[in-house]
Every structure is written in C-alpha cells, then in structure tokens.
Computed example of a mutant assay.
Amino acid sequence: MGLNGKYSVGILLTFMLLGIVMLYVFPVISMVTGVRSITGDTFFISRLAIWAVFLIILLYSHYIEKESFLVQKEKKYSVSFGIKAVICLYLFCVFGGAVINLLIQNFIHKEESSKILQFASIFKNNYFLIIFTCFTAGTVEELLMRGYIQPRIEKIYNSPYAGILVSAALFGILHSTYGTIGQVVIPFFIGIIFALFYKKYSNIKILIACHFMIDLISLMAMNFIDFKHLSVF
C-alpha cells in the first residue's frame, strides 16, 4: 500500500473511531458499570475514550505510515502574535457562530438539544470536569481534525481546498450526535476558519488554545445561567 493509501486508511480510522465513541461510549459504559444515567464519572470516562482514539492514531502514524503525526511543519511565532491570534479567532468564531445560531433559531425552528441540557446539569459546579473536557476537546480534536486529517487530505488530492473542506465537514458531522442543526453547521463554520488559519500559519498550538477558550467560556457561562436559556449555545 502506498503512502496515500495509508493516509486514507488513517483518516477513515480516525473518523470511524471518533464516531463510535460519540455514538456508543455511554451505552458501553452503562453496560460495563451498570450506571444507567450519565454522571460526572461516566462523562470523564468518555473523555478518556477520546484520548484513547488519539493514542491509536498516533501509533498508526508512527508504525504504519512511518511519518510524523504532524506532516505539516509547525511554525513558531511570538507570544504576542499567539495571544492576538487566539483573541481574533475566538471573536470571529463566536460572533460568526452567534449569527448562524440566530438565523437557525429564527428562520428554521427553535432547537434545544436534550444532550446539551443533560450535560449542563453534569457540569454544574464541577470545575475539574469542565476544564478536563475543554482540554480534551481542544487538544484531541485540533490534533486529529487539523493536525492529522487536513494535511493528509491535501496530499491525497493535491488540493489545499480539499483539506480545508473535508476536515471541516468531518468536524461538523462528528458534532451531529448532539441532535441539532446548529451543532453541525456552527462546528463546520468554525472548522473552516480553523482550517484556513492552520493552512496559512501552520501552528496547531494556537488553535488548541482558541478551541479550549471557546469551550471553557461556553461551559462556564452555561454553569451560571438558567437551563431554559441554553438554546443560545
């Protein structure tokens, strides 16, 4: 199998494993532990499963592809540039996502995700779980979606646009398990912005920091507002 074939298998494996975790991790945890409802402990275990997916893909890149996990070479920037980039990306994603969410709420239908409502109660005043969840999402999702998938798609099709669009599409699809249109469209929008940034600046650390910041501020805000207002997220 050629390198592009190995890349294709790795991308498919990444998407399948993440999809399996998103869809079936809680039923499996429930079957093993006997705990029927989602609790802070079971949610923590589910985040460990996401780290396990990252480890599998890391090993695949090392032993099967025999290449660096990040095939797009990282560029170094000053701390001031990194801070400005994180803030600009955050504002662009949040305001853009807010506009998309407003359009969906007003022109399609009002959406409420039962999963988001359920998770909100789990995160209530559980600051360790909030931070660990945000760290997991920011680190693993960026390393896999932008760091691993995007440049490999680009190499397979010899097109940066393919890498940007496919990685963003997969990012959106993986969020579809939350059950609303907004939870697909907004991550797709953010995926496009992040993928464009990664293509131009080749720095995954800035994207990890921004992703962490978006999730942390959102979850902390959810922690302090009434559940009936959660549709804004």
Rank of each mutant, 00 (worst) to 15 (best):
L59F: 12
S80C: 09
I130L: 11
Y90W: 05
R146F: 08
I108W: 15
L55I: 04
I122S: 14
Y63F: 14
Q72R: 15
Q105T: 12
G96L: 01
N101K: 15
V79N: 11
L117G: 14
E74P: 10
E142S: 14
S113C: 12
A98N: 07
G138S: 13
M145S: 15
L55W: 05
I64N: 07
G97H: 05
T139Q: 08
L129Q: 14
F132Y: 12
I122M: 10
A85R: 09
K76Q: 12
G97D: 04
Y90R: 00
G82F: 09
E111I: 15
E111C: 13
L59Y: 05
A137M: 05
A52P: 00
H62I: 07
I100E: 00
K73F: 11
T133V: 04
C88S: 11
H109F: 15
I83N: 15
M145P: 14
N126P: 04
E74V: 04
Q118L: 10
Q105S: 14
F107I: 00
L143D: 04
A137Q: 03
H109I: 10
I57M: 05
C93Q: 02
Q105D: 07
L143S: 07
I87C: 03
F107E: 13
V86C: 11
F128Y: 11
A120E: 11
L89A: 00
E111Q: 08
L117E: 09
I116P: 15
V86R: 12
V71L: 08
I100R: 00
C88M: 09
L102V: 03
A85Y: 04
L55A: 11
T139Y: 15
Y63C: 08
W51Y: 13
F95L: 10
H62G: 08
F81E: 08
L144S: 12
E74F: 13
G96T: 02
Y63I: 05
F132L: 15
T139K: 03
A120G: 13
S68F: 13
T136R: 01
A52G: 00
M145E: 08
I57N: 03
S61W: 10
K75A: 05
A52D: 00
E111L: 13
N125C: 05
S68L: 10
S80G: 08
V86T: 05
K115I: 05
F92M: 13
T139F: 15
C88N: 06
S61P: 01
V99I: 12
N106Y: 09
V86I: 10
A120I: 02
V140M: 06
V94R: 11
L102P: 14
V79I: 03
I104A: 13
E67C: 10
W51Q: 05
N106T: 04
L144C: 13
C134T: 01
I130R: 10
W51C: 04
G82T: 07
T139L: 12
F107H: 15
N126I: 03
F69E: 01
I64C: 10
I122V: 15
L117T: 02
I56D: 02
